[in-house]
């Protein structure tokens, strides 16, 4: 096999070579894609399914307990989030959560516990850089975008909803 990108790439730098270079890069990228091993997707999906499922079942049991003792629906939901977040932060602090995530992948990332981990992990890591510039500035390095885009999306939807109401459509 002779690779498109295998020649010394200096030749293609000159003059009309720009298009060639782009083609070469694409060829190399595709070739690398073929060469690079990837995780076994069905296996990983199964693990994510089990891990995520278990976390949701724990959430459901907290929810059921809260409703049983007579709390209203929203407050029960609040308790559920709060307790799951607490559990996740404790497991993160004990360095257990990364191990769950290594096995469970998205199953540990996607639930609210993954969100809590993404807040606690930078807080712990950057404590050495100080209270304000370290923990303070960097606590949201991973979770910040989630809050920004979540709030922004719901703002846009809310704005459309408000217009819809004014126009009498809704």
């Amino acid at each position: 096999m002779r690779l498109a990108g295998a020649d010394s790439n200096t030749e293609s730098l000159e003059g009309e070579g720009r298009v060639d270079r782009k083609k070469q890069q694409e060829a190399y990228e595709n070739y690398v894609k073929r060469k690079t091993p990837v995780h076994n997707l069905p296996a990983n999906m199964t693990k994510a399914f089990i891990t995520g499922g278990i976390i949701c079942v724990i959430g459901q049991s907290i929810l059921n307990y809260c409703e049983k003792i007579g709390l209203d629906k929203d407050i029960s939901g609040g308790w559920t989030s709060m307790i799951l977040i607490l559990l996740s932060v404790i497991l993160t602090a004990l360095n257990v959560y990364p191990r769950i995530a290594k096995w469970g992948g998205a199953g540990a990332l996607v639930p609210i516990t993954g969100f809590a981990n993404s807040v606690a992990a930078p807080a712990i890591e950057f404590q050495k850089e100080g209270q304000v510039m370290g923990i303070g500035c960097k606590i949201f390095t991973i979770a910040g975008p989630v809050i920004l885009y979540g709030v922004f999306t719901s703002w846009v939807l809310g704005f459309l909803y408000w217009i819809g109401k004014i126009a009498g459509l809704l």
């Binding site: 995780h39 999906m45 994510a48 891990t51 995520g52 949701c56 959430g59 998205a106 996607v110 969100f115």
Partner: peptide, 27 residues
């Protein structure tokens, strides 16, 4: 709760494994 929660996570796993999306973007 188990199967719906699990399913959402399994679908997100496809994004993680088969696209260049970093975990933050998936979230």
């Amino acid at each position: 709760a188990f199967w719906v929660g699990g399913l959402i996570c399994a679908l997100a796993q496809i994004l993680l494994d088969r696209t260049k999306l970093m975990p933050g973007r998936v979230m």
